[in-house]
Design a protein around this nucleic acid. Sequence first.
DNA 1: TCTTGTGAAACGCTTCACAGCA
DNA 2: TGCTGTGAAGCGTTTCACAAGA
Lengths: 208, 208
Amino acid sequence: MVKHMDVPEETMQRMLAYLRELDCLWNEGKEKFSSQSLAKALHMNPAQIRKDFSYFGEFGTRGVGYATKQLIQELRAILNLDRTWRLALIGVGNIGSALLRNPELKRQGFEIVLAFDKDPRRIGNKIGPLTVEDVVNVKRRIREEKVQLAIIATPVECAQETADKLIQADIKGFLCFAPCHLSIPDEIRIVPIDIPMALGKLVYHMEV
Amino acid sequence: MVKHMDVPEETMQRMLAYLRELDCLWNEGKEKFSSQSLAKALHMNPAQIRKDFSYFGEFGTRGVGYATKQLIQELRAILNLDRTWRLALIGVGNIGSALLRNPELKRQGFEIVLAFDKDPRRIGNKIGPLTVEDVVNVKRRIREEKVQLAIIATPVECAQETADKLIQADIKGFLCFAPCHLSIPDEIRIVPIDIPMALGKLVYHMEV
DNA sequence: TCTTGTGAAACGCTTCACAGCA
DNA sequence: TGCTGTGAAGCGTTTCACAAGA
């Protein structure tokens, strides 16, 4: 199976959207689908879907379509979503604790196994099965628990230093909720979730 | 000033990133910058920045660069961020209440003025200055309060019906935290924030 | 000399259109 | 006949390279 090289980033993101939609179709009992039916549901061009799939292999049957269950498995494998990922969370404020309480993440294969904060009033608190630990121990604990991914949910002021600490702990990628640019080496992957920026995208298109 | 027509979506998103970075530069006391210095800070090509700006006008001085404060004002006006936007929040669970408690939003010009839920145990609760209202009154209250934008923070199961209700209430755009595709008319704008999908983007690039 | 603003070239993604199969 | 898989065309974005101006 082809992977990564020469696959546009846009294709990969759509693959995630296809998988999400296919999970729905499967739950609704739809055992097969065509590029046309999926395209209609997602408001897009069927050729786009076929082209996206074609980067990774041939999954359909000409004249018939695709088998939903089989495609779900293929997509999970392609996207590395056929296993459980262990995450560290840094910053147990509003957003951080919302993530800890969110059962959807575990259902999708993402388990937060470590939670850190720098505020002494939060250290030691239990949230679900986890105890909030002191952020000074990040490096040691992440290595002990063999965690590869992290979520930065600290205030902007601490985001860069947190990222630096995580990189020292050999974290290979993180999700960042702090609305600021972080300087990190090229080989580290960062996916930002910037809520004010998302609201900015929304209002740009509003007539005033 | 040119606006919207012929401006690539990518350009608009980068404009938001420029503004975010310029706010930082201004706070650090940097009164001017060049496309080169900004490009270096953001890890990008300076020609890209100049081209992006050029869609909206000429903001710099040849041989000199740009004035930080002036550019911040220009960008705010271009992006419709030179005013306060009033929002309704639907779903006061983990994520919803984290948003209500997040002071960053108001600082950036986004004020949540209405909060709704369908769970009787949450209706009537006070969070900060707001009281959680019954979602059955969404339409009336949104019109009374003249709110144009909404945040959907409900579970996936209620997301589509919530969107339908909001559209009936003449909401023109929304941010959606529910990780699912929503069917909405073309003229309504939706910006999704899908946390499991963001984690998916992250792990695709991990070697296993 | 330095940096902006911008046509034009280069590049990459999307869409088309049709051959290949069931 | 119906739908997939795909080379090639079409199209939009990025980057280059340089004229213009401080």
